[in-house]
Design a binder for these strands. Structure first.
Length: 458
RNA sequence: GGCUGCGUAGCAAAGCGGUUAUGCAGUGGCCUGCAAAGCCAUCUAGUCCGGUUCGACUCCGGACGCAGCCUCCA
């Protein structure tokens, strides 16, 4: 039985889909004006893992992750670059898809873009105005009137009085209430714009997600996810918009992933302390980055450091080392004990650290079976390890290609020379060859049968 | 200031009211020509102070500390 932590109730709840056997999930995706950083990678990997587990658990999942391809920062960046905003967004959408593929993130079923959802957005704003929840402000922008929505603050645990007491932004006289937020923003000269009943302009940030999610998944759906920082105001506003427009409950379960931190501080673009995915992938294999993310629970903070990435690399090496030398057979029986433990971990709010602990226990037993020469046991355990790894999006490479990278003829020659030296009991030469390879980052491992395998360090 | 959440061994990171987490590192052993890898054993825990309980790292209260949101942000 799958349990999921719901931000709305602040506890783990038994997952009960609206329609048995089905699930609709919407995740707030990227605003595409720059390369994805590791924080974005975490969202992609975490919800990809959630999607994989839901599917494997038998739910017919519709996974929607949007792209915000129009907003103030995009306009600003395109202007700075002297290019059309569409050229900018197309470039970074392509880059995002590249990063995603590298990290073994399966594409969502639907990837709606804000600019392709303008009619739906306008329709929703008209409904909100019709319902008395939105108004045209003094500057022509359309605003949502937060005090007209009774449940405002239910997700973030805030109430309007507290919010107003802590108001830090300068008063905008175009609004009735400082906490009201923009639904439709009038275009200044030269800005991208779409025609609307209120004049040429563009959607506010929050409305696009309300429009796209309800269009793709219906007025009421199962799971809505995103980073912790979207809880307020973004998701709070989404609830106000969607429920205000449809009159129905919007979402059953809200999931929020924790931040990636650098030196105990949130990684973010505004702080400038971010590492882009492509930058990190220059130094670490993509699968290592994925494991690094999965080694922490999705709601916990994740500290980014080279030491942590290195450890993830060592951990992955341990798993692949266990698989090394065993054929990639398919269709083999798998060990149901481990499968059960794994499922139990994942069913407990997607507890990937515990699920991974199961894989390490499995690797230990596999190593023991290898030492005992039990081929049947080895095959079964290896098949189980690969199967469970696959559910997390890891361990799908050939072990040698992970451990060795590109084949290297020179290394093979050195190994042969060393085997000859060993036969001649010329230990000094054998050790010298091993040391020189070690200096080049190549580690040799002698097997009892006289053969030698190798792997690259780190 | 308001609202969240967190505080576990050398490091990272989980579960759990009484029984091995797991990975890395350390120590001892097996294996090895020596290593590496692997296996076995093993040392380091639960911020502090109260309370509940036969028993608390685990539940409750308080203190302290940290992070996040309250402003664009995954």
């Amino acid at each position: 039985m799958l349990k999921i932590y719901n931000t709305l109730t602040r506890k783990k709840e038994l997952f009960q889909p609206r329609i048995p056997g089905q699930c609709g999930m919407y995740v707030c995706g990227m605003t595409v004006y720059d390369y994805c950083h590791i924080g974005h990678a975490r969202v992609m990997v975490v919800f990809d893992t959630v999607a994989r587990h839901l599917r494997h658990s038998g739910y017919a999942l519709t996974y929607v992750r949007n792209i915000t391809d129009i907003d103030d920062k995009i306009i600003q960046r395109a202007h700075d670059n002297g290019e059309a905003f569409t050229d900018l967004t197309e470039r970074f959408i392509a880059a995002m898809h590249e990063d995603e593929r590298a990290l073994s993130v399966l594409p969502p079923d639907i990837e709606p873009k804000a600019t392709q959802s303008i009619p739906d957005i306008i329709a929703m704003i008209e409904t909100l105005i019709g319902n008395g929840l939105a108004y045209v402000g003094g500057n022509g922008d359309v605003f949502y009137a937060v005090n007209k929505f009774a449940h405002y603050g239910q997700l973030s645990g805030k109430n309007l009085d507290d919010l107003q007491a802590g108001e830090r932004v300068g008063i905008d006289h175009a609004k009735h209430n400082p906490l009201d937020f923009v639904l439709w923003k009038m275009a200044k000269t030269g800005e991208p714009a779409w025609p609307s009943p209120w004049g040429d302009g563009r959607p506010g940030w929050h409305i696009e997600c309300s429009a796209m999610s309800t269009c793709c998944l219906g007025n009421h759906f199962d799971i809505h996810g995103g980073g912790m920082d979207l809880q307020f105001p973004h998701h709070e506003n989404e609830i106000a918009q969607s429920e205000g427009a449809t009159g129905e409950t919007f979402v059953n379960i809200w999931m929020h992933n924790g931040f990636v931190r650098v030196n105990e501080e949130k990684m973010s673009k505004s702080l400038g302390n971010f590492f882009t995915v492509r930058e990190v992938l220059k130094a670490y294999q993509p699968e290592v980055v994925r494991l690094f993310i999965l080694l922490s629970h999705y709601r916990s903070p994740l500290n980014y450091s080279n030491e942590q990435l290195d450890e993830a690399g060592i951990a992955l090496t341990r798993l692949y080392t266990a698989l090394r030398g065993l054929a990639l057979a398919t269709g083999l029986a798998i060990d149901l004990g481990y499968v059960g433990r794994f499922k139990q971990a994942m069913d407990d709010d997607f507890n990937t650290p515990v699920a991974l602990a199961v894989l390490f226990d499995l690797a230990r037993e596999l190593n023991t079976a290898k030492a005992a020469g039990d081929a049947e046991q080895c095959a079964q355990l290896a098949a189980t390890l690969r199967h469970l790894g696959g559910l997390l999006g890891i361990l799908q490479s050939d072990a040698d290609s992970f451990l060795q990278g590109d084949a290297d003829e020179a290394i093979e020659q050195q190994i042969q020379a060393r085997i000859a030296a060993k036969k001649a009991k010329d230990w000094a030469l054998a050790d010298q060859i091993r040391d020189s390879l070690k200096a080049a980052g190549v580690i040799l491992e002698d097997a009892p049968n006289g053969t030698t395998t190798w792997r690259r360090e780190g």
